[in-house]
Design a protein around this nucleic acid. Structure first.
Length: 273
DNA sequence: CCTGAAACCTGTCTGC
DNA sequence: TGCAGACAGGTTTCAG
């Protein structure tokens, strides 16, 4: 589910409070529980995984790509929400949610639940976050992501631009929604070959990606269906989930097709193939 | 290296 | 109402 803006919203909420409930920063853990074994992707603590959490304190919450990183000295707990992951912090007074896969209870009685209906989400407990995220590409909101950088990256790539942008080892954080929206804003057809983009198009794409992600974060992400809550970006979609409706720029009907096995929305006039 | 298909899962929505 | 089928914010693995 969540892409960079939604993950960033979770991180800020876990740190300062918000959609997940109370913040978890500086809370001391009393116990942890794993309710779906496969949710745990790996752990440096081995069989001691659950007991390791006792008496540890969450000291920071950060993000890398779509991974949430909880710093719990001397280790790090990484969380990837995949398609349906969710995090809630509450006072621990009510029953555990139906789809809770992992949870931490704090000494003050509060609790953080990792809820994941489809069970695709994963967590890692590690001494070194890099061992998990080392294959990720650059941050699209970082300083490295410039038109020169993208121009060089796409130079010899015969791939279609949409799967290229979704490749987390190139750029970390873009998902289906923000890729469709960015390509629309840049006027680029999702099936165009990466290497076919002009320097001007590459520059425009960099700018629209940064702009769309920033707007997504400003609006706390996009809430669609039952999966994510609290966001407002869904009210600003130009093409995503708008097949058959009018393009906000030219009035042509938005089309939906499949690109790289992903539902893909675009304007046939603004984004010529 | 690139693409498509399948797998991992459950829930929702659509059409008959 | 029931039921089959399609589809869903992601990633990995495998075949061609």
């Amino acid at each position: 589910m969540p892409e960079l803006p939604e993950v960033e919203t979770f991180v800020r909420s876990l740190k300062f409070g918000g959609m997940t409930g109370e913040p978890v920063l500086d809370r001391k853990i009393s116990s942890a529980a794993l309710l779906w074994q496969r949710t745990l992707a790996s752990s440096d603590a081995g069989d001691e995984f659950l007991s390791w959490f006792q008496e540890k304190t969450i000291r920071d919450v950060t993000r890398r790509g779509k991974y949430i990183i909880l710093q719990i000295p001397p280790k790090y707990l990484l969380i990837h929400l995949r398609m349906s992951g969710d995090i809630k912090v509450d006072d621990g007074g009510s029953l555990t949610e139906k789809h809770t896969r992992f949870l931490m209870k704090f000494e003050d009685g509060t609790r953080m639940q990792f809820i994941d209906t489809r069970k695709f989400g994963r967590i890692w407990l590690t001494d070194d976050p890099e061992s998990v995220v080392h294959k990720l590409g650059i941050e699209p909101l970082g300083e490295v992501f410039t038109s020169d950088w993208l121009t060089a990256k796409i130079a010899h790539s015969p791939r279609m631009i949409k799967p290229f942008l979704l490749d987390q080892s190139i750029i970390a954080g873009l998902g289906n929604i923000y890729t469709d929206e960015s390509l629309f804003m840049a006027g680029i057809h999702p099936k165009r070959k990466a290497q076919s983009l002009s320097a001007g198009e590459a520059e425009k794409l960099v700018n629209t990606i940064r702009q769309v992600l920033a707007e997504g974060i400003r609006l706390n992400g996009a809430s669609i269906d039952w999966v994510y809550r609290g966001g407002q970006f869904q009210n600003h979609f130009m093409v995503y989930q708008r097949a058959g409706q009018k393009c906000p720029h030219c009035g042509a009907l938005i089309q939906k097709t499949t690109v790289g096995q992903r539902g893909t929305h675009f304007c046939p006039v603004c984004q010529p193939e």
